[in-house]
Amino acid sequence: MKRPRWQFTLRTILLLTAAVGVWTAVIVNRREIPQLEQRIKAMRLLARELDIKDPNKIAVVKCQELWYDDNEWKIYLPEGKFQVSLATQEVDAQDLAPPSKSAPLPAGTFRLSIAQEKQGKDWRIRVLKNGQEFITVDEPATWHPGHGSSGGGAYSTTEQMNSSEPLVLFRRRFMQPVSATSSQTPNGPCAGVLLWIEPVK
């Protein structure tokens, strides 16, 4: 009795099934990988990791806010001399201001945060380095009359810039009343909070 011309053994059927499965997986993966890569990019933004591509440049990213007005940054400084400065008066919309206090910063990676707190009727502005108090400035109650403010922290994604330029981390300017029902930020310098890092020349 002759066998049918297209008769297959069990081993051949299993090999064909495996081959079809592998090629199906390859096709599905080729379609899915670009979508997954886009999702990974979005997740990296949420993670806010400090990405240092050029060790000769400053790198900075703002940490995820865990509560209202939570302002903390991961920072990398290359070799050189730097200082962090805090200004609470004459804060301009773009330029730097006369610092209320400054402190030296070493090269390397660290965290820097700023907090604006009520101390009785007065105000205390604190800068912390790796969770330890680093700079403190006290201001009277009239410093922030409570009419609102504009501005805040920068660098929600990792950025790198030349170490010769100032790195402004935080800029907040307090509004002043213009009528009985409205307030606005002044055109010129005013009370507020300005935090920046700059090279020491």
Rank of each mutant, 00 (worst) to 15 (best):
I13P: 02
I13T: 11
L14K: 08
L14V: 08
L15M: 15
L15N: 11
L15Q: 13
A18S: 10
A18N: 08
A18V: 12
A19N: 00
A19V: 04
V20I: 15
V20H: 01
G21L: 07
V22A: 13
W23N: 11
W23M: 13
T24F: 09
T24S: 14
A25S: 14
A25C: 12
A25L: 15
V26A: 12
V26C: 10
I27N: 10
I27A: 13
V28N: 02
N29Q: 09
N29H: 07
R31W: 07
R31Q: 09
R31L: 05
E32I: 14
E32C: 06
I33G: 09
P34I: 02
Q35R: 13
Q35H: 12
L36G: 00
L36Y: 05
E37Y: 10
Q38P: 03
Q38E: 14
I40T: 10
I40V: 15
I40G: 03
K41W: 07
K41L: 11
K41V: 10
A42W: 03
M43N: 13
M43F: 13
R44F: 05
L45W: 00
L45H: 04
L46Q: 14
A47G: 01
R48A: 13
E49L: 06
E49P: 01
E49S: 06
L50E: 04
L50K: 08
L50R: 03
D51S: 06
D51L: 06
D51E: 12
D51Y: 05
I52C: 09
I52S: 08
P55A: 05
P55W: 03
N56H: 07
N56E: 11
K57F: 02
K57Y: 01
I58H: 02
I58P: 01
I58N: 01
I58M: 06
I58S: 01
A59P: 06
A59I: 02
A59Y: 06
A59G: 10
A59S: 15
V60I: 13
V61S: 03
V61L: 05
K62V: 00
C63R: 15
C63P: 00
C63W: 05
Q64V: 04
Q64F: 03
Q64P: 00
Q64N: 04
E65V: 01
E65Q: 12
E65F: 00
L66I: 01
W67H: 11
Y68H: 14
Y68F: 12
Y68W: 13
D69T: 04
D69V: 04
D70R: 10
E72C: 10
K74F: 04
K74W: 03
I75N: 04
Y76S: 09
Y76C: 07
Y76H: 14
Y76P: 04
